[in-house]
Simulated assay, not measured.
Amino acid sequence: MNLAFADIRHRLGRFLMTCVGLGLLMAVALSMVGIYQGVVAEALALTRSLRADLWVVESGTRGPFAEASRIPGDVREMIARVPGVDAAGAITLRTAEMRAPQGLLRAQVMGYEPGRPGGPAAIESGRGLGGARFEMVADARARLPLGAMVTLGGDRYRVVGTTRGLVASGGDPLVFIQLRDSQELQFKLAPPAARRALAAGSSAGGTDTINAVVAQLSPAADPDAVAETVRRWKHLAALTDAEQGELLTRSVVNRARVQLGMFTVVLLFVSAVIITLIIYTMTMDKLREIATLKLIGAPDRTIVGLVLQQAMLLGVAGYAAAIAIVFMTRGLFPRTVALGPAEVAMMAGVIGGICILGSLASIRAALRIEPQQALGG
């Protein structure tokens, strides 16, 4: 007879309640691991969707994601003529609030030229932007159905298509509009400001400004060599796709990753302490039973197996509950919870290690129990 299973059957209700409580705690820790991975996945989702091999921005900046970048719109034609460039497109990027049917919606607005690099690679439903103005493609995170009307910058846009998984590094959903609409939204001065600019002798009303140029290179082109060619123009800077990815993961979202990582470590430490206390309490509750086993001559390995098996069963049941909770609810999280087989297996190993280490104190206490205690001494 397996003593661990026999004891669990004897206290089944208490064991199940303990597993549910541990499952909730492990679910929080597992969710933090998924959110940690999701932050990186979200940061790189846009660059991967654009399939850009080269990013051209204002000299001295690392924009458009890390800092502000403004360059003239005709830079796109200059980049398109660089040897090795197959196609180039101009983009603008800004965060804005829009009035949607469900209320105010904060989103990152990206303007691009349909037919050129800069737009989403895949449309989940509806269609991409056409030739008409005031059309919008929104990510599913914005919860805007096809045909919805939203007000942005005083103009009304119709949602004609949706994407999935395209969000800003801060978690805001991405929406795509025509480059011309985005330029007017971002760079056109209001009439009072335009009059002041004219009075000061500066240009007012010019909107042929963009934040970056994205380029797709020919298969034989060397991205580093093309980037170096662009950098020779003193008013421009260039980043390859690899450099842009490194910048996003190590600079733009680095603080969020560090915070999530530290919070995950704290949660795992708290989980280890609670699991250790639960195992110790379960062992001390069986003090008389363990003493009886010793009194009838049970070897120490039987006592060790009892404690260790119960600890592992507790960990397995709690972790199974945690996986079920996380995978059933991760669609409700405001950030992406990216959990694959590697993350689930890694967390399982961590929980297993915690259960083994947490049972050591209980095993030591169990082995020190005197057989006479079974007689009430």
Rank of each mutant, 00 (worst) to 15 (best):
A238T: 11
T240C: 07
D241W: 09
D241Y: 07
Q244A: 14
E246A: 14
L247E: 05
L247D: 06
L247Y: 05
L248F: 03
R250C: 03
R250I: 07
S251I: 12
V252A: 02
V252Q: 00
V252C: 04
V253D: 02
V253F: 03
V253P: 04
R255M: 11
R255T: 14
A256E: 03
R257K: 14
R257A: 07
V258R: 05
V258Y: 01
Q259M: 13
L260Y: 03
L260E: 01
T264H: 06
T264P: 00
V265M: 11
V265G: 04
V266R: 06
V266H: 06
L268P: 05
L268V: 15
V270A: 15
S271C: 12
I274E: 04
I274F: 03
I275S: 06
T276M: 10
T276H: 08
L277V: 13
L277I: 12
I278D: 01
M282L: 15
T283G: 06
T283A: 10
M284E: 13
D285M: 10
A291E: 08
A291K: 09
T292G: 08
K294E: 06
L295F: 08
I296V: 15
I296M: 12
D300P: 08
T302V: 14
I303P: 02
G305R: 14
G305V: 09
G305S: 15
L306M: 15
L308T: 13
L308Y: 07
Q310V: 06
Q310G: 03
A311K: 01
A311V: 06
M312A: 14
L314Y: 01
G315Y: 00
V316H: 01
A317W: 00
A317G: 07
A317R: 04
G318I: 02
Y319A: 01
A320L: 14
A320R: 00
A321I: 15
A322T: 05
I323V: 15
I323S: 03
I323M: 06
I323W: 00
A324S: 11
A324H: 07
I325L: 13
I325C: 03
I325F: 01
I325G: 03
V326N: 02
F327A: 07
